Simulated scan of single mutants.
Amino acid sequence: MLYLFQQILNGLHMSALYALLAFGYALTNGVVRRTNLAYGALFAFSGQTMILVAVFGWHVLWLTLPATVALGILAAFAYAALVGAILARSVFARLAIRTPNAIVVATHGVALMLMEIGRIASETRDFWLPPLLAWPVVFASQGDFRATLTVMQLINVGAILLVLISATIALERSRFGQRWRAVCDDPKAAAMCGVDVPAVFRHAVLAGGLAAALAGILTALHFGNVSFGTGLVFGLKILFVTAVGGYDSPPRAAAGAAIFGMAETLWSGYFPIEWRDAAVFLGLVALLVLRPGHEETRVAQP
């Protein structure tokens, strides 16, 4: 029983990361209404950027460990904001009007570019951060077995919960949330009612990119490494998970992703881990096939 409790604790951390990624993806997809293959790559790119800048700060600038980690976090958010702004203005905004289906191809190209930038910057090597706040916090014990989470895991879960709750409240009560829902429902009608559709479009894409960046940074802080190929698997998982939870509701997408993260962790604890991805993808495909309804596809025209 205590082993099950440990797996549930482990699942809380992965569930929080998946939930944050799904929330940001749904926020962007609500206005784009096309598959964004660059989202997972941006997640991995942000985590890797944080690590590479931290390594630079440590070995070249001779900063202290807290200072070099802080520098890496700032750089990761800055690069993620830059990529998000470029995607919103130069990719999504132009293609959504003319050839919206080309967004899939364009974002795939952006994903390959980000992966190659990360690979070249790291010289095809993996850099690792030292264990950060890895002290175990004991939740239960029996004999020599202890159910624990590290301090870093608890900070990650707490930070993600705070972000998700704040973002959900903002979507429900803020003027931006109202305009975002209007643009998601019908961008032309929203524009006729005085909504600045291009601004909502850009802000939604940027916010989604920053959510991916935060997830990448927190992943790097916990695991110590994010490679340039990590984003492919995470991106595919979030794409399927968000489709099951619903593209039109970021909170619902986050809840579905949290359930997925818990299921994935429990599989790893009780079944062969080499079959984990195959099993979860098969389950997601089955859920998509068995869904009673299908969402109407609309494209926001900024």
Rank of each mutant, 00 (worst) to 15 (best):
L12K: 00
H108E: 13
A44T: 11
A215L: 02
G283N: 01
L288T: 05
V285G: 03
L239P: 07
E274M: 07
G231Y: 13
A70I: 08
L63G: 07
F240C: 14
R298P: 00
V197Q: 08
M115K: 14
D248N: 07
Y18V: 02
L63V: 12
T68M: 09
L239V: 12
S90E: 13
L290Q: 06
R276T: 05
F43G: 00
L232C: 04
L17G: 04
M115C: 11
G47H: 06
V55S: 08
A215D: 05
N225K: 12
A81K: 11
A80F: 10
F45I: 03
T64H: 11
L149Q: 13
V280R: 00
T68F: 02
L42F: 05
A44K: 12
T297K: 12
V60E: 10
D277V: 00
E264N: 02
V105S: 04
N101D: 15
I165G: 07
A88C: 13
A258S: 07
E264W: 04
V157W: 07
G30Y: 04
P131K: 04
G224W: 07
A286D: 02
G246E: 06
S227Y: 05
G24D: 05
L290C: 09
V226Y: 06
S227F: 08
E274Q: 14
I97K: 06
T99E: 15
A159W: 01
I238C: 01
A254N: 01
T107R: 14
Y247D: 03
S268N: 09
F92I: 04
S15W: 01
P250G: 00
L162W: 02
M262I: 14
T230S: 15
S268A: 13
L214F: 11
V151G: 00
Q142D: 15
A102E: 12
F176H: 08
L17C: 11
D186R: 05
D248M: 02
P292S: 10
A38I: 09
V69I: 15
G158D: 03
V104W: 11
E274H: 14
A215T: 05
T28Y: 01
E123G: 05
I217E: 02
L284R: 03
N101I: 15
A96N: 11
Q7Y: 13
V299C: 09
H222L: 14
N156C: 08
A85Q: 06
L132C: 12
P130C: 09
A211T: 07
V163A: 10
S166A: 15
D248C: 01
F127T: 05
T49C: 09
H108C: 05
R276V: 02
P272H: 00
T297I: 14
I97Y: 05
Q6D: 04
G235Y: 09
A22Q: 06
V241G: 14
F5C: 03
L112E: 13
I259W: 11
L4Y: 15
A78Q: 07
G256A: 15
A81F: 14
R298I: 10
M14E: 04
L37H: 12
L133D: 04
Q301W: 10
G261W: 11
A147G: 03
F43K: 04
A189I: 10
A22Y: 07
Y3E: 10
A67D: 13
S249F: 00
L17R: 10
R33C: 01
